[in-house]
Design a protein around this nucleic acid. Structure first.
Lengths: 219, 219
DNA sequence: ACATAAACGGAATAACCGTTCCCTTTATTC
DNA sequence: GAATAAAGGGAACGGTTATTCCGTTTATGT
């Protein structure tokens, strides 16, 4: 659906104004360009967080005070812009995950991260959409950040499982799916005082994840 | 987004060919009309179940062997068609719920229904979309069927809670949200052998829903 | 068979958006 | 303060659908 008509109106020598500096860092940007790029990212961050991936590009352009063309000068597609915005979230959570890795209680460390990811999603719609579009689970580019994120989580999970704090039959994929599903849950549901409901859901998930050995020992 | 331009191209006396017999049962349908209506419902049921709410209407028209116009003669909007299809799912599950209401073990009865709803969603995309569009939780029309469904579930839940099989701090809304979230989980994720993953998820949810008293008693 | 209202079909309409194109504006360099 | 290449803006394009409109076909009653 994206790779259809490549070289249609491309009369073999036109200057190809776009698809230039997207890998970026090739040439220093002009002063105004750099500023606009930042405005765009800021606006995108705000609007994606509020309304999710589905808003029209034009809305971001408005908010940023630039034209649509300017956005496309800086980012080849809407998705690329979205990705750019999401990288920072991923980095933040990754660093939180890493700092939790040395926690004395592997179970607590794991469930802390679990809650953090969900809390982020509760207030940040872009984060949910990132999960939805698979941006956190598989996919293409920015694999450095993504892999970091993945392996940090995997590490916490494994340690928690070894400590018998988390049931052993699940893997990172299960975890992603579970997170994904909880994040989506509140998407289109009533919005108001749902924080209580949300916490109850999280609590159910956490109890469900717990290793039953802890209880079995009591017998 | 749906109530915008009402009477724009409406020159005050045009015959309004549509919006006639949608409340229906007013006049007996012509023989071929009745047959087509059934074909449409059958096709819609199949295609919605396979591909969800997002397929174009034209695809249903093809499958049913009728023109687009015919569909709109019978159903005022795409959503109305979707709703018509979904009513039967709701009715089926409602009757299952009712038959579980007298089960000796309220806990088992509740978790059986819980699993049934999820299994349905696992193979029926329309069912997921129904949840997504809120069709099972709040909303407008067909309130008879919906209320039946809701109260049947509420009943099972309450009984299970009274029997200390399910934690007492949740309500039907929580339950809906949880179901909703699990149904959505597998939507855009890998598809192949996901049934195992799905069952693990369900198992997590069920364990999380259990009343902790059962374990506490062991102390 | 015929008349006629009901039902059909599907081209045309309308609205929405991502992306491109190209003309205009501006930062930078000398 | 020109010259010029980079950057900006936003109208226009193209694709996708839901929905409408109206000329054609058909079931039904007589």
């Amino acid at each position: 659906m994206t790779e259809k008509e490549q070289s249609l109106n491309q009369t073999a020598d036109s200057p190809q104004p776009n698809e230039d500096n997207f890998g970026d860092h090739s040439k220093p940007l002009r002063a105004d360009a750099k500023q606009n790029r930042e405005q765009i990212l800021k606006a995108a961050q705000k609007i994606f967080a509020e309304k999710g991936l589905s808003i029209p590009i034009s809305e971001i352009a408005n908010q940023a005070g630039v034209g649509i063309g300017t956005i496309y000068r800086h980012f080849p597609t809407k998705e690329a812009l979205f990705e750019a915005v999401n990288i920072s979230y991923k980095q933040r959570l990754t660093s939180e995950a890493k700092s939790l890795m040395n926690h004395v209680d592997p179970g607590k460390a794991f469930f802390d991260l679990f809650s953090r990811v969900l809390d982020e999603g509760f207030t940040n719609r872009a984060w949910k959409d990132a999960f939805k579009s698979g941006a956190l689970i598989s996919e293409t580019a920015n694999s450095d950040v993504l892999q970091d994120f993945q392996s940090a989580i995997a590490n916490l999970l494994t340690r928690a499982q070894q400590a018998k704090a988390v049931r052993e039959d699940i893997d990172v994929q299960d975890l992603s799916t579970l997170l994904f599903s909880l994040l989506l849950a509140l998407e289109q549901q009533g919005s108001a005082s749902d924080i209580d409901r949300f916490h109850r859901l999280v609590s159910i998930a956490i109890d469900g994840l717990r290793c039953k050995d802890a209880f079995n020992k009591l017998k």
